[in-house]
């Protein structure tokens, strides 16, 4: 006893000041505080440490913490900028900012390129594209013959790989996306225009003036 002054830290490891995060992202301070409500919900869902572990991310996306999914893994890895196996609050806010409707298209194009460049070589290679198509088909319980998958991948490369070197570089990717803007559809989350409505408890917890 006698520890009346000992106070538990208010925020967990990885917490960053909303004022700084707002200055560096597309969000306002109040929106960052609202995002903290969402972050807390996810980051305390299994392991109560205020960090998003992969199982918690899977649980939030699929209502099942064991649902392995190549694309969710890629998103998790890209959000985990420090590559320490967890998503911290600052990483969460900065990454989500890319999905903000007001964020420049170039940032979204670059993020999608990194997402699909599975091995981080700076190119989307043919094998990577085939692996992603196969993963999507498995996820959807759709069956296509290997021949048809090959045809789809070949056809896509004919359209996207303009210098015909067997891999898609970031410039070819940008050109391809400009011609096929629907490919960026899931890089924009309209919900982010209205975060305060989704997670209104910021009003109770706000530290901003």
């Amino acid at each position: 006893m006698g520890c009346v002054l000992a106070k538990k830290a208010k925020h967990p490891v990885g917490y960053e000041d909303p004022i700084i995060l707002a200055a560096e992202t597309a969000f306002t301070v109040n929106e960052v505080e609202s995002l903290y409500e969402l972050f807390k919900k996810i980051s305390y869902s299994i392991i109560k440490d205020g960090l998003i572990h992969k199982e918690e991310f899977q649980l939030a996306l699929f209502q099942n913490s064991n649902n392995r999914n190549l694309f969710a893994d890629r998103i998790f890895d890209l959000f985990d900028v420090k590559r320490n196996g967890v998503i911290e609050f600052g990483e969460f806010v900065r990454s989500l900012s890319i999905f903000h409707p007001k964020t420049a298209q170039d940032e979204k194009i670059a993020f999608a390129f990194k997402l699909y460049d599975l091995r981080g070589t700076g190119f989307i290679e043919r094998e990577e594209l085939k692996e992603m198509v196969t993963a999507l088909l498995n996820e959807s319980d759709l069956f296509l013959s290997d021949d048809l998958i090959e045809t789809i991948v070949d056809q896509t490369f004919k359209l996207a790989d303009s210098n015909c070197d067997g891999r898609i570089d970031s410039i070819e990717w940008k050109e391809f996306v400009m011609k096929n803007p629907s490919l960026l559809k899931n890089m924009t989350l309209p919900y982010l225009m209205d975060v305060k409505m989704s997670f209104p408890s910021f009003i109770m917890n706000s530290e901003a003036d």
Binding site: I42, A60, F99, Y116, L136, L183, L189, V195
Partner: peptide, 25 residues
């Protein structure tokens, strides 16, 4: 109708890429 589907169109439909789910309910 295009003869063959664009592979990126196909993979962009993955549930794993639908972060909107995080904001629902």
């Amino acid at each position: 109708r295009p003869a063959v589907m664009n592979a990126f169109e196909l993979i962009s439909t993955s549930q794993g890429l639908n972060l909107g789910v995080l904001f629902e309910k």
